[in-house]
Design a protein around this nucleic acid. Structure first.
Lengths: 110, 110
DNA sequence: CTGTATCCACAGTGATACTG
DNA sequence: CAGTATCACTGTGGATACAG
């Protein structure tokens, strides 16, 4: 029985940048498909749909359908998804510091 | 002038799972090419070389060549790379918790 | 030991059109 | 509104061989 790497385990569940950005948004509260489509800049309906399905399958988020016309679907965090908040927060902190202190002020290109 | 998303900024610098795993290893101390090749399970020389170059270009890590025969190259963290430690640690924590408490014990598949 | 060079298969993704 | 279907394309990344 092989020992598993926790970091690799985490990366298996959030394996692309779209999922991180989706998580970033839903951490602020439940979101609808259309909202995410606009908020996650550059994502296509297909990619959004696909990633939402995978995240639901992995137990990271819940999908709630409101029986209305026109259709209304809301995505919210499961407890497992909520537990990822520290990961996203650490990335947010790092990114903020990078944008403020590094980009352009040091010799690092961009 | 558009406001930039810190999370997306972070993801632009560590945009694939290889970089995360490389970072995980070098956070424990300077590492050589061959060590990383074995430690980052599944990575090819090409991918390893490519990612190391990108991370060096982005200012995340330093490359030090020892003028010896046979060649000896060591990769270590720059201050910028070191500042990513909280990100990796949060992933490590999450992954550990997931492996211990979630996988197999709840209804979440795997 | 630490890589680079080349080839190439195929998974990932964008674009577009369409549906309940 | 919230997706799905299909297709074409591209770049990622594996395999292999080779080099300094």
């Amino acid at each position: 029985m092989k020992k598993q790497c926790p970091v690799a385990t985490t990366m298996n569940l959030i394996d692309n940048k779209w999922k991180i950005l989706i998580l970033r948004d839903i951490l602020k509260g439940p979101k609808r498909f259309g909202f995410l489509k606009k908020s996650v800049v550059g994502i296509s309906s297909k990619m959004l749909s696909q990633n939402l399905h995978e995240m639901e399958r992995d137990g990271i988020l819940n999908r709630k359908v409101f029986p209305e016309v026109p259709p209304h679907v809301e995505y919210s965090l499961s407890p497992l998804g909520e537990s990822m908040r520290p990961i996203i927060r650490s990335m947010e902190k790092w990114g903020n510091n990078y944008l403020e202190n590094v980009k352009g002020k040091q010799q690092i290109k961009f």
